[in-house]
Simulated assay, not measured.
Amino acid sequence: MKFDPNSNALPMRSELPAISGAPAGAAWFWGSDDELGRLNLLTKERIEEAVKLIKTGTIINLKSVHDQMTTAHQETNTSILQSWRTDYPDPPSFGRKGFEHTIQPVSESAYDDLYNMNTQSGSQWDGFRHVGLRSNNNIIFYNGLTKDAIPNAKYGGMQAWAEHGIAGRGILIDYWGYTGKSYDPITTHRISLEDIHACAKSQGLQFQYGDLLFIRSGFVDHYNRLSETERKHLGMLKKSEHAFVGVEQTEEMLDFLHNNYFSAVVGDAPAFEAWPRSGINLHEYLLPLWGLPIGEMWDLDKLAEMCRSRKQYTFFISSAPANVPGGIGSHPNAIAIF
């Protein structure tokens, strides 16, 4: 059985047929050799429809607070979903190695960059080789890739996303703005399904198959306001001591994330789901079972400003992951265009 990516009537989570040899609840229905998962939903037809969201306006660069409209760029209104500063968080959460940048002279008049980095330490895509699920005495990744194959096999790596490209309709749930920044994002604040629906209703949003779902929870905004001492303290916490805002881990949330057939989900916090977890591990469903990409620690603040000013929470989004064969994750390299 193979799903039609252009269909708008795909099976609910409770209706998924069993797949021989696959873990229960697997949605590996895009082909036996598929490496794209829910990115298959980004069809030409959906991309063409998403392009209609692009209108005339000003240009906003998320790196800068005071960008001005320029005559050369009046044709498009581009909000750059800038990967957060490459060296943030500093130090990274969960004991990961921080970003290192070295400038190397190659001649008397030329220089090169050298990067030493963990793709999971800052703004990132979680690829399908990032998290697996225990099944039948093995660790299984998306579409049947096994733990033993991860070190050497290239199948299921970031090169597949890079070659396909990521572009479509983005939708922003500005939960941080909706709540009036009324909580501490570095505590375990669980964003409920009811919260998401209430925020979406207030913004006039309706979900469509293939949407890239963005949830702004306020972590980046909060982190940028911390002192250097506070950032260092946060980064030095043990894994068991970390606490972050994120979506709740419930069966209802699983149904929502599955049944709306989002092509990807993106947040601005370290784990997308609330930390520490409460029972369910959303990553084990989204990545290995459904092939649903997860973006984490994206800087969504300027995007939220643009959406609020335009009263429009939909936009055209594109992302160019690093073309690394067998890659586990990547910086997003993304832009949103209004």
Rank of each mutant, 00 (worst) to 15 (best):
S7K: 06
S7D: 09
S7N: 03
M12T: 11
S14R: 09
E15T: 04
A18H: 08
G21V: 10
G21Y: 02
P23M: 03
A24I: 14
G25H: 03
A27F: 02
W28Q: 11
D34T: 07
D34R: 04
E35W: 00
L36C: 07
R38H: 13
R38G: 04
N40R: 07
L42H: 04
T43W: 01
K44G: 10
R46S: 12
R46Y: 06
K55W: 06
T58R: 11
T58S: 14
I59V: 12
K63R: 13
S64K: 05
Q68F: 06
T70Y: 03
H73W: 10
T76M: 02
I80G: 01
W84Y: 13
W84T: 05
R85P: 15
D87H: 10
Y88T: 08
P89E: 07
D90H: 06
P91M: 13
P92E: 11
G98Y: 05
H101Y: 10
P105N: 05
D113I: 01
Y115L: 13
M117Q: 06
N118C: 11
S123P: 15
Q124P: 00
G132N: 03
L133D: 07
R134V: 11
R134N: 14
N136M: 06
N138P: 01
Y142R: 01
G144I: 05
L145F: 01
K147G: 10
P151Q: 07
N152D: 09
G156K: 01
M158A: 10
Q159C: 08
A160L: 01
E163P: 11
E163Y: 07
H164L: 04
A167N: 11
I173W: 03
Y175Q: 09
Y178N: 08
T179D: 07
G180Y: 09
G180Q: 07
K181Q: 15
D184V: 09
D184G: 05
P185K: 04
R190E: 15
R190P: 06
I191P: 00
S192D: 08
L193E: 13
E194L: 11
D195T: 12
S202M: 05
G204I: 06
G204P: 08
L205I: 15
G218N: 07
S227C: 06
T229C: 09
K232P: 02
M236I: 02
M236N: 15
K238N: 14
K239S: 13
F244P: 05
F244G: 03
G246E: 09
T250C: 11
E252I: 00
E252T: 08
M253C: 03
M253Y: 01
H258I: 07
N260R: 02
Y261F: 10
Y261K: 04
S263L: 04
A264T: 04
V265C: 10
D268W: 00
D268R: 00
A269K: 00
F272P: 08
E273Y: 14
E273C: 08
A274F: 05
W275R: 05
S278A: 15
I280E: 07
I280C: 13
H283L: 02
H283K: 11
Y285G: 02
L286F: 13
W290Q: 01
G291Y: 04
G291N: 02
M297P: 00
L300N: 00
D301K: 05
E305D: 13
S309V: 10
Q312A: 11
Y313A: 07
S318Y: 14
P321S: 15
G326Q: 04
I328W: 08
S330A: 14
P332K: 12
A336F: 02
A336V: 04
F338E: 09
